[in-house]
Nucleic acid binder design. Structure first.
Lengths: 137, 137
DNA sequence: GTAGATGCAAACTGTTTGCGAGGTG
DNA sequence: CACCTCGCAAACAGTTTGCATCTAC
């Protein structure tokens, strides 16, 4: 049984057919799907799923901290499961490919910086945009 | 004469009434105005300015690297003059206030990280979200 | 059985665009 | 004068919402 499903059960969410479909898609997604992706994938299992339901489900899950919303500056929201280890993103400017990374030192520095400015760090977003070194030859 | 105006002149932009108004607003903006802000402020000088023109002007300026587009995850694009020293943003979760900061060490770390992943860093976005330490008492 | 979830379509928000009129260089 | 830019309104894309119906608990 999926981790997400279990989590939602624990929260006490009503587990409808539609929510199960969306959760299943999220569960097995290796990428960072947007609403349209989720809708398309879940529709294969549940053909008369409505996109409004996907919006509602995803919004709900985001508010419950089950999902994290990502916005890479193209105006399209993407989602990923929130629970996994924290990481940031590097976006390949040529291909749009998204690479996840984590760096302890940067995390610490951010914490310190916020405090220096008089704030408690509640969250952050770090995105690196780059091009493959290989492509330079 | 404003720096922005001069820059646009050098680029060879046609300097219409409307563009002058928008540039003037940007020139003196101490915050990070969105399109609506720009439209309202510029409208005071140029009452029959159209919001479509603001969109067109801002888009143009962004493409010419005169402006930088900021997106803080609420779906509203904000703008700032691109030329100033690079900096990142800390967003106050309670008030929405935006504080600018710059940290050499973080900049360097990002560069190194990208290279470690096989990329040349072309840009980045770092946003810290926090709450005032003072508010905790 | 009942509160809550769904599908549908209409409404909304931020942004873009086609067109004829107007202004800049 | 030619080309670019403008204002207007209509078109768009992504997202939200009102309402009647349906369903998980």
């Amino acid at each position: 049984m999926g981790i997400l499903l279990k989590k939602c059960e624990k929260i006490g969410l009503r587990l409808t057919e539609q929510r199960r479909s969306v959760l299943a898609v999220l569960e097995e997604a290796k990428d960072h799907p947007n609403i349209h992706d989720l809708f398309e994938r879940a529709s294969k299992v549940d053909p008369n799923l409505s996109i409004a339901t996907v919006y509602r489900t995803v919004k709900l899950l985001e508010e419950l901290n089950v999902l994290t919303k990502l916005e890479f500056g193209d105006g399209i929201a993407r989602y990923e499961v929130a629970d996994r280890d924290h990481h940031d993103h590097l976006i390949d400017l040529k291909t749009g490919k998204v690479i996840e990374f984590y760096d302890e030192e940067i995390e610490k520095l951010q914490q310190q910086l916020a405090r220096k400015l008089g704030y408690r760090l509640r969250g952050h977003r770090l995105e690196l945009y780059g091009t493959l070194l290989e492509d330079e030859k």
